[in-house]
Design a protein around this nucleic acid. Structure first.
Lengths: 219, 219
DNA sequence: ATTATCTATAGATCTATAGATAATGC
DNA sequence: ATTATCTATAGATCTATAGATAATGC
């Protein structure tokens, strides 16, 4: 029947032929694009098949139902985010770097990654509305990323002039994440944050972090 | 036929009987609740009629189609937000208040209002995805609110130690708005911002604003 | 021989309407 | 007399399947 199986409502690729692999990717690419642009609920499986230049019958050969297709798209997005986050918070990567460098790099690369795939987050947020598994996995991803970044800052407590370094580190990462989210959401929160050029925005964000933490070279 | 007319795709109440008024409110209340909880796309007009304890025929007597019902709900939400914002940024209201008081009040009342109706924003964001008029109106609302708040701060430039008060005021309002948004989105961005108690969060946000602006009583 | 794809369509769900019945208020 | 409401259902749209045809790779 189908070459996909739902393991605990999740998705697993089990295609045999090389053609199968290409077709599944074509469906996933088409689905991700349309889901991100028009929303999952407003995109029909027929739309996805048309966009992928394949038939609706072929789509249902590869995916049990629309839910499975959505889960596959979500899984691909989250897996990519998770691996990026793992690399970003690896202490070894930041050996020798100071807080300003870490913060600047986090802000700049978030904007770059988020700007490349603006629909990804929209998909995750929409699916999370009704799917507990996705909501929880997304929450864990962000928690993992923020915890890792906070730890990088706490490891550099000697640079922090704020009287409570652990609390200040945590707050500053939350604050920065909120600003990056606002800026990346664009249509959702399009204020001055969205209008200012990326570089100027990062500069001001880094400066704000520095003054709140009372970094050594700031005093 | 119908007692609603679509004026430029917008909605106008034209009910005659007292009963009509009550029924329209019942439909709007039911729709707002379900739209906010399950999403507009996942809520059928039948769901709305059932929730309002009225028939589908009655719903279509009052609203031309689902789109008109959605527009009516959106209009009610935005009108409420707009009037709240107008009151919040009235300079007369803040005569004698300093920056810290303004910022604290903005943060506290945003959290209070947003917490009362968590679904409102979700509805606006979902509708904005496909409706240009709503997206633009929501953007204008936020721009108006942020411009007003920024002006209140700039009027108090003598309190600001930052070398560029207009830029600093603008940045700080953006930053604060981003944090409030993150906190209110709860499920969307549930990190430490969401876990900390409202009062502690407001305290830390106000303190952060103070240190970035280099407020007089902070130096 | 097995796997992938296509066309055609069944089945489910949702929006919207028609026409009959009930309530309102002059 | 006018307005509001209800029941029943038509019409549109979407998901999913059946069965025939084409391509793959041992």
């Amino acid at each position: 029947m189908s070459t996909t199986t739902a393991t605990g409502d999740r998705w697993e690729r089990t295609g045999a032929q090389a053609r199968s692999h290409r077709t599944q990717d074509a469906f996933l690419d088409a689905a991700e694009e349309l889901f991100g642009r028009d929303g999952v609920a407003h995109t029909s499986v027929t739309d996805v098949a048309d966009r992928a230049d394949r038939s609706i019958g072929s789509l249902y050969h590869h995916f049990t139902n629309k839910e499975t297709l959505v889960a596959a798209v979500v899984d691909r997005i989250l897996a990519s985010l998770e691996s990026t986050a793992d690399r970003a918070i690896d202490p070894a990567r930041w050996a020798g770097a100071d807080i300003t460098q870490i913060v600047r790099s986090y802000a700049a690369s978030s904007l770059e990654l988020g700007g490349q795939r603006p629909g990804s987050k929209r998909i995750i947020v929409e699916v999370s509305l009704t799917d507990d598994v996705t909501r929880e996995r997304y929450r864990r991803f962000r928690e993992h990323l923020e915890d890792g970044l906070t730890a990088l800052l706490i490891d550099r407590s000697d640079e922090i002039g704020h009287p409570d370094p652990p609390l200040a580190a945590r707050f500053v990462i939350d604050q920065l994440t909120a600003m990056l989210t606002a800026r990346l959401d664009g249509d959702t929160i399009p204020t001055q944050l969205a209008e200012r050029a990326d570089r100027a925005f990062v500069d001001e964000a880094v400066s704000s972090v520095g003054s709140y933490l009372r970094l050594a070279d700031d005093a």
